[in-house]
């Protein structure tokens, strides 16, 4: 399935701010996070502590990714 991936803040040191890719054999958010870590093992810790949103809704590791989803990886917030 085709998805759009958005990365913010410190994650941009490891990945492009946005990219469209074809995901194969990936169903859940947890599998997606493992896929991203395998693409850049140096990002393992920041991905571990980040939240993920699908189409701007925060999701859990067990949630399923749908075709066409906009997946955002959100490092811990530091606004204010």
């Amino acid at each position: 399935m085709k998805v759009k991936i958005l990365c913010f803040a410190g994650l941009r040191d490891f990945f492009p701010s946005q990219q469209e890719i074809e995901l194969e054999n990936i169903i859940t958010v947890s599998e997606f996070k493992n896929f991203m870590v395998s693409n850049n093992p140096n990002a393992k810790e920041i991905i571990r502590i980040s939240r993920v949103s699908l189409n701007q809704i925060i999701v859990n590791d067990s949630d399923k990714i749908q075709d066409g989803a906009i997946i955002a990886i959100l490092p811990p917030s530091s606004g204010g």
Binding site: F8, A9, S53, L74, S77, S78, G79, G80
Partner: peptide
């Protein structure tokens, strides 16, 4: 303000 700081996807450099 507590929820904005902790939950909202905003980041400072």
């Amino acid at each position: 303000i507590d929820r904005v700081k902790h939950e909202v996807p905003i980041w400072k450099k």
